[in-house]
Design a protein around this nucleic acid. Structure first.
Length: 585
RNA sequence: GGACCCGUAGCUCAGCUGGAUAGAGCACUUGGCUUCGAACCAAGGGGUCGGGGGUUCGAAUCCCUCCGGGUCUACCA
């Protein structure tokens, strides 16, 4: 029996074909196929309801004609039943489930199946994008983690992904940094912890300008010299961004985060005049209060709220560089789609950016790529207020990650005291970092995130440790049986799933493609998290209900087959999310 | 003032272009390890989906309005 990777897509196609056979208006008919409540089946199609209503037809009669017209291959795959006012419920046959599970025998196979989702699409994904000379803190972790997961997911689903770290490496902070570097530098502190020292210099310089107007002038002079290309200041600027990049790289390595490019704001300096000129000649930009701005008359808000693309003093701001960045990504990278990850507070800016770019490109005959501002909620303290406004410094990411691993180590030691310490440290690292990462991914990104140690390191419910634990249990079965989960001989002769637990598990496996589709089209990793959590839950129930290593060779093989595929999909999914999986914990 | 986000069980959250009796976890009650890992599983109680209107075969989901919380709103990013 041939079964395709994406059964939902196959059923959707079959229904559209059947609609043609049954003489329905194919262009107007959307099957509205979705996963169903297990009480009703595996998938359901609701489309006949709206179709029949619009034509004043009896929906049940339409559903019956449609089901009768389904191709033979579909009838082999599943049973179709009409329920209620005209729902069509599809239940995959055990034979079809077996065929699907058997077919998905490697990561490569899953990837090949998923590739149809975004094949041929080139995405530029802009994420992390920290400011030079500022330490990464808890507020940065969400964008980093979500961005990395989105890149991996899109690439897995066939897209060509270009990862760009749009670092804030140019701007007014460099006046203070350079002045501070020249007058207040503690060389030994810089050697031991460069970012700590740069941050101290910035704060000290900032305080000095407030205390003494002469210092303020000196700071401004340093900035002017830098922008004029003064060799000494330019060299210092290079030094500072190199030190900063080194510190960032350390964290990126720890979190397994990668970039293809790190084109910071400074990269676009020489590309700004073209932006001003084109927007002016296109009639989009105008002078207002001395600044160059763009209004959008059709927009309820941006008709009066300007998009300031050049400041009244002639200097650039982030609208200027972001416009240049849009152009570069379109022309140089030839992006079909651009995704920028920042917190939701910048929503206005990116809406204005998208509107402006769309009009600009339309006027100049350029193709406007699909643009998505992948926004996410702020990190809040336990008091519900923005974490940055709490008294004292925000929690540094380095310290956060170290503490997560330390806390996980205590737990690992408690649960598995017999393992050697080196292995417990390694496990604690995977569990602790995974817990932080997963906590950021599992919640819908549009909501604010309340940071709490207890929540991040809670190892119960929909969390990293629960999923990692499920992986180790599957691995343990194979280890105890002396089998290799990737060896087809271990699962040869498997029969179709029979018991309720086997069937439920096989069905959950077969809806993996749906979770990929949802996750990558909406760029919301929590859909995949929810799926993996449900899969791990089905496995845990199965594991408690059925013994895998039994004497009957057919039953044993089919249960081992299910276990092998749970392992494959669980690990594939977790790796896409950026988690490291374990053999023991 | 205006725009956007959010409001679902005591707490933390899912709920996919409107679908069938709104779901998980934590906490609480109860049961399950001499048998593949109990960081687990099974069962139970707990809801006027912020309030009120509307749209329709059907609304947590869409529209209007009000309440409550948050963010943004001319030269920081």
């Amino acid at each position: 029996m041939h079964v395709s990777f994406d059964l939902a897509a196959a059923l959707d196609t079959a229904l559209r074909t059947a609609a043609g056979t049954a003489g329905m208006d194919v262009t107007a008919f959307n099957p509205e196929l979705r996963t169903a409540d297990p009480r009703h089946g595996d998938f359901q199609a609701n489309g006949v309801l709206s179709y029949a209503k619009a034509r004043k037809l009896n929906p049940r009669a339409v559903a019956e004609q449609l089901v009768a017209a389904l191709p033979a291959s579909t009838q082999e795959l599943c049973t179709a039943a009409i329920a209620g006012p005209g729902f069509i419920n599809f239940t995959l046959t055990p034979a079809a489930l077996l065929a699907w599970v058997q077919a998905q025998n490697s990561v490569e196979h899953l990837k090949a199946g998923a590739a149809s989702l975004h094949h041929g699409q080139r995405y530029v994904v802009d994420f992390s994008s920290p400011n030079t000379a500022k330490q990464l803190h808890v507020g940065h972790v969400r964008g980093m983690v979500i961005g990395e997961a989105i890149c991996r997911l899109l690439a897995f689903c066939g897209a060509e992904v270009i990862r760009d770290n749009h670092i804030g490496d140019w701007g007014t902070q460099f006046g203070k940094l350079i002045w501070g570097y020249k007058h207040l530098l503690d060389a030994s502190a810089l050697a031991s912890d460069p970012l700590e020292e740069l941050e101290r210099l910035y704060k000290a310089a900032d305080a000095a300008t407030k205390a003494d107007p002469a210092t303020l002038d000196a700071v401004r002079a340093e900035l002017v010299k830098l922008q004029a290309g003064d060799p000494e200041n330019l060299a210092l600027w290079h030094t500072i961004i190199a030190l900063s990049a080194g510190a960032f790289t350390e964290i990126y390595r720890l979190l397994d985060i990668h970039f293809d490019h790190q084109l910071g704001e400074s990269f676009y300096n020489d590309k700004l005049p073209q932006v001003y000129a084109e927007l002016a000649s296109a009639g989009l930009a105008e002078e207002s209060q001395g600044a160059l701005v763009v209004f959008h008359p059709e927009h309820p808000r941006f008709k009066t709220q300007p998009f300031i693309i050049r400041k009244s003093d002639g200097a650039a701001n982030y609208a200027s560089t972001d416009l240049a960045t849009m152009l570069y990504r379109t022309e140089h990278f030839r992006a079909d789609a651009i995704a920028v990850l920042t917190d939701a507070r910048q929503a206005d800016h990116f809406e204005q950016l998208a509107l402006t770019t769309q009009k600009w490109f339309a006027k100049t005959g350029r193709q406007f790529p699909r643009f998505t501002h992948v926004s996410f909620g702020s990190i809040l303290g336990e008091d519900g207020k923005a974490i940055k406004t709490r008294s004292g410094d925000p929690i540094k990411l380095k310290a956060l990650l170290a503490e997560a691993a330390d806390r996980a180590f205590i737990l690992v030691t408690e649960k598995a005291p017999d393992l050697p310490e080196a292995e417990r440290r390694d496990i604690a690292s995977a569990v602790g970092l995974g817990a932080i990462r997963y906590a950021d991914l599992a919640q819908n990104r549009s909501s604010d995130y309340v940071f709490s140690w207890d929540k991040i390191l809670s190892f119960e419910g929909n969390t990293a440790p629960y999923l990692l634990y499920a992986v180790t249990r599957v691995r343990s079965i194979f280890r105890k049986a002396g089998l290799d989960p990737t060896d087809p001989t271990a699962t040869a002769g498997a029969t179709a799933p029979e018991t309720p637990a086997e069937l439920a598990l096989a069905r959950k496996l077969a809806t993996f493609p749906v979770s990929l589709q949802l996750t990558t089209t909406q760029l919301r990793p929590h859909f995949l998290c929810t799926y993996l959590y449900e899969l791990a839950g089905e496995f845990s129930s199965f594991y408690a209900a059925e013994k895998v290593i039994v004497d009957d060779p057919a039953i044993r093989a089919r249960r081992l087959l299910l276990c092998a595929r749970v392992l494959l999909i669980l690990e594939t999914g977790l790796h896409l999310l950026g988690l490291r999986t374990l053999a023991r914990m």
